[in-house]
């Protein structure tokens, strides 16, 4: 899959177009497979599918069930139902939440910005702080920084993210009173746009740090190892012999090369990050898709759960694309990253 960019401009253009086409094909394939999967799951659920879609607690009356049966064509053969279902998904119709009496897409769009803010902040926080701390630790490679990092990452690796979040609430909110523990913003207070932004940011700190912590530890460790490895290679000695300053060597030579494996791993962990957001949002009452997931689970609201599943998978693909772009920015040799 990897193509060289050393060719003429035209080749590069074709390569980029192919990459975009390949990505779009993969994107649609993933969406279709996930949609099929969701369809099979609802079929596999115990009980009447119409009842399942309406929510299991039995609030649905006979008329609504009939409406659902008609809408989803539940009286038609399974393969026709699947076709209708996939066609709906491709036209961005995610169905209707019979519990909340709203289209699923409306519910999801309402919550999406908060989730994007949280996962985006956590992702960038983990990546950039990890690269920064890892570089510092790698340049001053010593036994103590290694031991400290190993112990911290071992503990974070063993910690359930919801518990880490609660412990942060206990420390920074209940004991010290520094940061708000729950919600997205202070309710019932009027403030200017700048004050509002600061208010949201202060609410964002604890959830974002909880979500980022484990990845921060992983990237720091990885970056440290990577910096140490690159710093011992011959071209660094050449750069030094050429008389380049230490800061030029670090920014121009070591960092550029050492960052690549960290970015690759960050892309691979996007799906875990998005999954973690569900739990973190539940802990901090963050009004995003994770919180919506919790509410949907409590009410057994399947159309909403299926919609979230689809949207979150798309979010992972987008995060993969972002890491791909970062990778390309750093390493111009790569036009299409090898899939294996």
């Amino acid at each position: 899959m990897t193509t060289s960019a050393s060719g003429a401009q035209g080749h590069r253009g074709i390569a980029v177009a192919l990459a975009i086409l390949g990505w779009a094909a993969k994107f649609i394939a993933v969406v279709l497979v996930i949609a099929t999967f969701a369809f099979v799951l609802v079929k596999a659920a115990p009980g009447d599918p119409a009842q399942v879609m309406a929510g299991q607690t039995g609030a649905a009356d006979e008329r609504m069930l009939a409406q659902i049966r008609q809408e989803y064509g539940l009286d038609k053969p399974v393969i026709v139902q699947l076709g209708t279902h996939l066609k709906r998904v491709l036209t961005l119709d995610l169905g209707f939440s019979y519990r909340q009496r709203q289209p699923v897409s409306t519910l999801i769009l309402e919550r999406l910005p908060a989730t994007l803010l949280l996962t985006g902040t956590a992702f960038l926080l983990a990546l950039f702080s990890g690269i920064l701390l890892g570089t510092l630790a790698g340049l001053r490679a010593g036994k103590w920084s290694d031991t400290l990092l190993t112990v911290i990452s071992l503990i974070l690796y063993a910690m359930p993210v919801f518990w880490l979040g609660l412990m942060m609430v206990l420390l920074f909110s209940v004991q010290l009173g520094w940061l708000p523990a729950f919600g997205y913003q202070t309710i019932g207070v009027t403030m200017g746009p700048f004050a509002r932004m600061l208010d949201v940011a202060s609410h964002l700190v604890l959830p974002a740090v909880s979500l980022a912590a484990i990845y921060l530890a992983i990237y720091t460790r990885l970056m440290r190892a990577s910096v140490i490895e690159v710093a011992h290679q011959d071209f660094i000695k050449t750069a030094r012999a050429k008389g380049l300053t230490q800061s030029r060597i670090i920014t121009g030579h070591i960092l550029r090369n050492a960052i690549l494996p960290v970015v690759t791993i960050a892309g691979m962990q996007a799906s875990a990050l998005v999954g973690g957001a569900v739990v973190v949002e539940t802990v901090f009452a963050w009004p995003g898709l994770g919180r919506l997931t919790y509410e949907a689970v409590m009410q057994r609201d399947y159309p909403v759960l299926l919609g979230i599943f689809l949207v979150m998978s798309v979010l992972v693909i987008v995060l993969n694309l972002v890491t791909d772009a970062i990778y390309r920015l750093i390493d111009p040799r790569v036009t299409t990253r090898a899939t294996n």
Partner: peptide, 21 residues
């Protein structure tokens, strides 16, 4: 396998348990 690694595993687990009971 790659597809399963793209799907956010935890959300899939939630969906499975919520549907199957």
């Amino acid at each position: 396998t790659e597809l399963f690694q793209t799907i956010p595993g935890f959300i899939l687990a939630i969906l499975l348990v919520a549907t199957l009971g």
